[in-house]
Design a protein around this nucleic acid. Structure first.
Lengths: 147, 147
DNA sequence: ATGTGACTGTCACTTATGTAACTATCAAGC
DNA sequence: GCTTGATAGTTACATAAGTGACAGTCACAT
């Protein structure tokens, strides 16, 4: 009759998402004082090269105000530069500076290591099931990957 | 070399968790103006019967201040009552009122229906993989289910 | 009985986030 | 050229959330 939180998909996903995030956060927070939106903009920029704020938001699944604030923060660190597009002066191209690239480079390995550490707690078969489940759910929720 | 957000576990989990939550939220928000912490306290109380705020927080994986605020909100709706434990006057037993039970009862079916709708977009094999993946990750993240 | 430390729940303060409004710019049609 | 509607990004405002401090209570040892 009841709903049993422990077997309720949205609850389980949210709880796992938070647990994993909480385990990753110290890496970018303790090393550089970054928050998650800033970390994600950093990755997105390294991921898809110079791009507009809108593209970064789409790629990192973040609201435009989050991106706007994160970009301001990263700019004040001089980790990225903005260049107004002369073809369309509403938008600006964002690009990592060498300092930004270095910061990103210093975070990739430890972040990967923590992810690997979590995945290593799963059996090979469980990891296959996880990859399958994530891909299936992403399709079910109409999330397009890459571009 | 890079990190590729689209294949990064924490990012994928968070994105899916938000997508699923966004699809569920209208049910409890539009019908009763509840927010997620309130909805969860409601479920938790229906789930484990009269309990302390601490137990509700543990069962629903929510910070004690979130629980405290949600309990105040539900109390002001007269959906739950507090009874100070005479054995330990620091804690109080929370219990749903008939009105609270009715509200909960009116939400279970539509919430279940939305969950089923999402799961119905997956193949049988994908659903099995999902269940396996969730259980494995919960173990990996040291999340104990039930009690 | 009394002091120490731990615990329950609340509050104040700060920070994070979303919504909606706004500025500046553009493209297209008239 | 001007108007209309759409777009990129920022800002103001309101809401949500976490941190740390706090009051009141308890268990236990002295």
């Amino acid at each position: 009759m009841g709903l049993t939180l422990d077997s309720f998909l949205p609850y389980r996903l949210n709880r796992l998402s938070e647990a994993v995030s909480n385990e990753m956060r110290p890496v970018y927070r303790d090393a550089h004082g970054l928050n998650r939106p800033e970390w994600r903009v950093l990755v997105a920029l390294a991921d898809i090269g110079p791009a507009t704020a809108k593209a970064i938001g789409a790629h990192s699944a973040q609201h435009k105000t989050k991106v706007s604030r994160a970009v301001q923060a990263l700019e004040s660190r001089r980790w990225l530069t903005r260049t107004v597009d002369p073809k369309d002066r509403r938008s600006e191209s964002l690009a990592l500076t060498p300092a930004g690239q270095r910061a990103y480079g210093s975070l990739v390995a430890p972040m990967r290591a923590r992810e690997d550490d979590i995945l290593a707690r799963l059996s090979q078969a469980d990891r296959r099931a996880l990859e399958r489940a994530l891909a299936a759910l992403e399709t079910a929720m109409a999330i397009e990957r890459d571009h």
